[in-house]
Computed example of a mutant assay.
Amino acid sequence: MNTEDYYYDSASLYQQREGVTLCKVPLENIIRIKVSGARVSNRRVWLVCYVTRPYKTEKAFRFLNNYTLFNRDFAGFLAAVRAANPAANVQEMTLGRV
């Protein structure tokens, strides 16, 4: 796993390390979000695939979601991606996939 943090707003997903933005991905460029088979500390690892412009090269991030009873940002992120790119293949989040 990497040591980066991931944040999103209504337009983009940001990959940051120590407060410095390493990568900014428009939500409309995300084409797939799915759970991987890997687990870390009994939590699922999620895979977020996106395309870069102008060559449409596919890249991916792997990270643990931050979804808890008191923090539902990951569910909001999934909804924001669906809104920005209705064609994206976004896997549903269930109790078994948290």
Rank of each mutant, 00 (worst) to 15 (best):
V98G: 00
P26T: 08
I33K: 03
L13I: 09
R43K: 14
P86M: 05
N89K: 10
K56R: 13
V90Y: 03
R32M: 12
C23E: 15
N42Y: 15
A88D: 00
N2A: 15
T57M: 07
K56E: 06
T3K: 15
N42G: 07
L64G: 04
R53C: 06
V20D: 04
T21S: 14
A60F: 07
L69M: 13
I33S: 00
L27D: 14
R32Y: 08
E18A: 12
S12L: 04
E58I: 11
Y8N: 12
L69S: 14
V90K: 01
A38C: 06
P86F: 04
T52C: 09
I30V: 14
K59T: 00
V25N: 09
Q91D: 05
N65Y: 03
C23A: 08
A80I: 05
T21H: 01
E18G: 11
R72I: 03
N66Q: 12
D5W: 11
F77G: 02
L22M: 11
I30K: 14
M1H: 15
A60I: 00
S12W: 11
V81I: 05
A88C: 07
N65T: 05
F74G: 02
N85M: 04
I31H: 09
P54Q: 01
A88I: 02
Q91W: 03
R32C: 13
W46I: 08
A84C: 05
V25L: 07
K34P: 08
M93K: 06
I31R: 12
L64P: 09
V98N: 10
Y6F: 10
V81K: 04
S36W: 10
I33D: 01
D5A: 15
F70D: 02
